[in-house]
């Protein structure tokens, strides 16, 4: 669909202005900057946001980091709030009060998307609003201090699933939100992260924004505080997430599942886990069985996804 080249994306004006207060090495920031670069120059947008790190760090009164109109109202309702904005647009357009075209993109963390905002997201997608919901999935409630969410991977050490003498971290696996959104039979669902020159992220974002109707993007967005890594390591972590098939890249277009990338040789999960402090306990002697169990779960899900994609 998109013929836009890498250079053109790179050269587009930043719509998230510098000066915000997000951490160095924050995946959420990279997600927002680059999703917004998929907007074609001159196109107007209203950006929505669930409460979270992103909101409190980019719109601290009296400063906003957004070049576009922006709305935050609460934690669990980014879907519903932007659906109201999008509906207002149609109402005002119908009455001739607005001439220009607008796009509607909202951002939520996994807490605001997988958990507390799940119903609001589902409702907005089901109603068919012409909007994009972007989840920057860092796998825990990071803003309140690294509590587990339903997106937290198994065995991760979080402040509500702490590793201890009787605990190996989070006992449950991750909810597969992208598949749940695909089950809404909306025109476009995609999963991506920060890989190489970001073309996968740009192209999926552009497709999500310019496909008519609701679209959902799930972007793995590592968090240096919660995952416990040094800022520069983020790129290697994302690469390993994809190469181990922990975080496969795929898209679902009008119900058609398609893998965006298939590693020639799937790397062992340890390559992803060992880069992060939250999994340190898995490498202690005697805990090999935990990694085996985690690997088995990743393998099972990868096979299931391949089947869906006909790969």
């Amino acid at each position: 669909m998109s013929q836009t080249g890498f250079k053109e994306y790179q050269q587009r004006q930043e719509r998230l202005a510098p000066g915000h207060r997000l951490c160095a090495g924050c995946g959420g920031t990279i997600a927002v900057r680059n999703v917004l670069k998929a907007l074609r120059p001159g196109d107007k947008a209203v950006v929505g946001n669930a409460t979270g790190c992103l909101e409190v760090s980019t719109f601290t009164y009296p400063y906003t980091s957004y070049e576009d109109s922006y709305i935050h109202s609460a934690f669990e309702n980014a879907g519903a709030t932007l659906s109201g904005v999008e509906t207002a647009y149609h109402a005002l357009k119908k009455k001739g009060k607005i001439k220009e075209e607008y796009k509607f993109i909202t951002f939520g963390g996994d807490g605001g998307t997988y958990d507390i905002g799940f119903q609001s997201l589902s409702g907005a997608m089901e109603r068919g609003h012409d909007m994009v919901y972007v989840c920057y999935d860092n796998g825990a409630y990071m803003n309140t201090g690294i509590q587990r969410s339903s997106a937290t991977p198994m065995y991760a050490d979080t402040t509500t699933t702490p590793v201890g003498s009787r605990s190996n971290g989070k006992p449950q696996g991750r909810k597969d939100l992208a598949a749940i959104m695909a089950a809404h039979h909306i025109p476009y669902v995609a999963q991506t992260t920060f890989i190489g020159n970001m073309m996968d992220l740009y192209q999926k974002s552009e497709k999500a924004i310019y496909t008519k109707g609701p679209a959902f993007l799930n972007i793995m967005a590592p968090c240096p505080r919660g995952w416990r890594y040094e800022a520069p390591d983020i790129i290697q972590i994302c690469k390993m997430a994809v190469e181990t098939c922990y975080w496969p890249l795929f898209e679902v277009t009008d119900g058609r599942w398609e893998l965006s990338y298939q590693p020639k040789e799937k790397l062992p999960l340890e390559e992803f886990l060992r880069l992060q402090g939250r999994f340190r306990h898995l490498f202690l002697p005697g805990n090999e069985y935990l990694i085996e169990a985690f690997q088995a779960e990743v393998d099972r899900r990868w096979e299931e996804l391949k089947k869906r994609c006909g790969a």
């Binding site: 932007l82 109201g84 119903q119």
Partner: peptide
């Protein structure tokens, strides 16, 4: 434009979005 929301929380949230948008 009627929005058949999935809860009253979303009704007020959508109302906030719509009113803030200028409707």
């Amino acid at each position: 434009e009627f929005i058949p929301v999935e809860s009253e929380h979303s009704a007020m949230s959508a109302a906030i979005g719509a009113e803030a948008a200028g409707a």
